[in-house]
Design a protein around this nucleic acid. Sequence first.
DNA 1: TAGCTGACTTTTGGTTTCCTAAGTCAGCCG
DNA 2: CGGCTGACTTAGGAAACCAAAAGTCAGCTA
Lengths: 158, 158
Amino acid sequence: MTDLLAQRDSWQNSNCSIARAVEVVGNRSTLLLLREASFGTRRFDDFARRVGISEPVAAARLKQLVADGLLERRPYREPGQRTRDEYQLTRKGQELLPALTALRQWGDAWAADDAGPSVRVEHQDCGAAVHARLRCDAGHDVPPAEIDVRPGPGLLPA
Amino acid sequence: MTDLLAQRDSWQNSNCSIARAVEVVGNRSTLLLLREASFGTRRFDDFARRVGISEPVAAARLKQLVADGLLERRPYREPGQRTRDEYQLTRKGQELLPALTALRQWGDAWAADDAGPSVRVEHQDCGAAVHARLRCDAGHDVPPAEIDVRPGPGLLPA
DNA sequence: TAGCTGACTTTTGGTTTCCTAAGTCAGCCG
DNA sequence: CGGCTGACTTAGGAAACCAAAAGTCAGCTA
């Protein structure tokens, strides 16, 4: 671990996946927009209203999310309505759901209000509640206290 | 789902666990400081240098993290050195590790550079790689596409 | 006791972020 | 064709955030 600590100064943030993820989703409105997208929100003004941000901010963030490939913009039309654009999660965006779920879980546990969780996440197939968990390749559930950080291939000198 | 969508306007962000979690950790430097804490960084200037933020910002964020109960500040002393303060993850802070792990995993998958992941997270007991996963109470692994969001107790009218 | 070091705080000034309010534009509806 | 609505964009200003440089303070160490 000391080795790792000593080397870590060299990469700092440039070669850190967390830093790169945070670069994309590391602000309030982006995470909340992704939450909305995962709940099925599709329309521009629903995003803005439900997230509680102004239209200019919603427009800018959504545009950025599309540019980053987390959302896809596609035309759709409801009967009797004109064509509109909807925003839908791409696979890249969907794969942030574990992170989002872990955050919600933490919020439920540590920052909940009296009313209890406002949403329940279920497995479509069986209806059971879904949780974010850490698990190792040997199949163990791993409590946060039992994880160990080691240098990876990107850190070791070539 | 339509029911849920209709009701969702009423709670917006006030009663959302994700929003509350984001309130605490929803910015770049806070997440990165927690990453450092999980790597074992303890001292003030190591935090600042490794995260790549200035000292005033580090001081403010660390203070906020202590106030929010994610970090604990405690005196410690290395042999031959004077007493110093270290910052250590509390249980509340530790339980954010699944979220942090999920973010890293996403970054590794979608925003990695050529060198590969810079850290490897292992299960202390067995050395196997640790991943963040979604799982339901029935024991199934749940891919992001198979989750279903329903209103929870905090959303339903009393 | 004078110096040094770690851990801050203060000050200054620039950049980013956000909101409000108002304007634009396209297409269905009457 | 004229109004309306959804989806934005523009303009203007307040607030938050940030880095750099300098100052403070406490307690070893010489």
